[in-house]
Design a protein around this nucleic acid. Structure first.
Length: 432
RNA sequence: GUGGGCGUAGCUCAGCUGGUUAGAGCGCCGCGCUGUGGCCGCGGAGGUCACGGGUUCAAGUCCCGCCGUCCACCCCA
């Protein structure tokens, strides 16, 4: 006797999605796919791993994600590759590579990988869906992107969502702001929180959204990005916020909204769920990235997009008790075929009914009628059709309503030839 | 990367200060109903008490380590 091998499990921070919960995933992704097409976006699929430079140059080598969270590996040909940590950089790389006509409107759904310590709403593999628009700097595109996200959240049933928007300015006014911010932080370095006293100079913008009281006091007394914007950036921001208001999407300006990726210019935004109380309350976010295509070796091309975390959305839905994302009994199959003559009849009948559009399941292993009916009940089917030796001999089928309440009149015998029509009728008359 | 809680049946958990064959509910299988599910009753299967060391006459229970998980920080979806 050999020893039983050690049982293997999914790696830390990853999860299997089983049928109990995968139905909600299907609905979420299906809804987003429908809406993205309605908004004029086409699906773009890119490889799950890229040359590490795509992400380093994209999200910025100084960002936490690039510095310590990427899954970087070398392949057998000595290439340095990384599993994608977010959705945008790959899409822009594909744009640069194929130079499609603009505006290029892409939607995507993809896993994303970050080597982090897992906790509520944060995993080493999570999933994002989102869109990107390349090739136009029209502020109304920002509005279109944000509104798609907003309408999507509405469509899936989220209510307690808030939209926070800000502008990071373009290269120049943002640069000037960083200079004055640096000056201010240098003057007040010793008042910062312990952590930021050490690391603020590598990425001063990070201090702005630090939650510690020490840093907040320093930041509040310092320069605001809102005052540093040039007139063009101010105009852009106004057009975005007015556009949102025009179509009834509520927003809040948050001048401290500084997102983690370096590629953002001008518009940045984030959607937070008030139903999620933990630190992981951001269900989506994005912004404009007018320099990114250039950074990835393309010609200067404006871009804007958003991404949303599927796991976070599901947590928010759960927290809001959105019932329609639970698995409903109605969602299951129509007919369960019970066959106690060996299984050949179930084979033929299942095939026939499925070809006629019914959702059908059956039992295997020649189990007893009692056991097969139990399985039929568990399946949630509305009706069962029964074939035993008696029916087989005379060419009939017993059709049984599994949802009827009284025992009389819930079951009848039909000719096998009429099975499709009889099943159709039985399903229509069956109670819900 | 830092800090804390928790790992006992498929699932949710009980197991008092260490003491004989480790329990419950749900789920699963079977029987009551030798061709009829759900409800009810009865019965059954299923556990190297995450793993590895240690203390002890004796460890699910105490100690150390390790892995996993959850939570917080950091950061983000």
């Amino acid at each position: 006797m050999s020893e039983q091998p050690k049982q293997l499990v999914a790696p830390t921070g990853t999860h299997d999605v089983l049928p109990d919960s995968s139905r909600a995933w299907e609905r979420l992704i299906g809804t987003f796919s429908d809406m993205a097409h309605q908004w004029g976006f086409g699906l773009v699929l890119t490889p799950m791993f890229e040359d590490v430079a795509v992400f380093n140059r994209g999200i910025g080598e100084e960002s936490d994600v690039a510095r310590k969270e990427m899954y970087v590996f070398e392949d057998r040909g000595g290439r340095t590759l990384a599993l994608r940590p977010e959705g945008t950089a790959s899409i822009v790389r594909a744009f640069v590579q194929h130079h499609p006509t603009t505006p290029w409107k892409a939607w995507y759904v993809t896993p994303a990988f970050r080597y982090e310590r897992p906790q509520a709403g944060r995993y080493r593999q999570h999933h994002q869906l989102g869109v990107e628009v390349l090739g136009t700097s029209d502020p109304l595109v920002d509005v279109e992107v944000i509104s798609l996200a907003w309408r999507f959240y509405e469509a899936i049933g989220l209510r307690r969502i808030r939209l926070l928007i800000n502008s990071m300015g373009h290269e120049e006014c943002r640069g000037e702001f960083v200079v004055s911010l640096r000056r201010h932080l240098t003057d007040h370095e010793l008042q910062l929180c312990e952590e930021h006293q050490k690391v603020w100079s590598s990425n001063p913008l990070r201090v702005i959204d630090c939650k510690k009281q020490e840093c907040r006091s320093v930041v509040d007394a310092g320069p605001s990005i809102a005052d540093a914007l040039c007139s063009e950036c101010v105009t852009h921001f106004s057009a975005v916020s007015e556009g949102l208001t025009a179509i009834g999407v509520p927003w809040e300006r948050n001048v401290k909204l500084v997102r983690g990726f370096d590629y953002y210019t001008r518009t940045t935004f984030e959607f937070v769920s008030d139903a999620l109380d933990g630190a992981q309350n951001a269900v989506g976010g994005g912004g404009r990235y007018d320099r990114l295509a250039e950074d990835l070796g393309g010609s200067p091309t404006a871009g804007v997009g958003f991404g949303s975390g599927i796991e976070r959305l599901l947590l928010a839905l759960q927290a809001e008790d959105v019932a329609h994302f639970e698995v409903l009994r109605d969602d299951s199959i129509d007919v369960f075929v019970v066959d106690t003559t060996g299984g050949q009849e179930a084979l033929q009948l299942s095939d026939l009914l499925r070809r006629n559009g019914f959702a059908v399941d059956r039992a295997f292993d020649s189990r007893s009628m009692k056991s097969q009916l139990k399985a039929a009940d568990r399946s949630g089917a509305r009706v069962a059709i029964l074939v035993g030796p008696q029916e087989l001999e005379v060419g009939t089928i017993t059709i049984r309503d599994l949802r009827a309440i009284d025992e009389s009149n819930r079951q009848r015998v039909i000719s096998r030839i009429d099975v499709v029509d009889a099943v159709r009728e039985a399903i229509e008359t069956s109670l819900n």
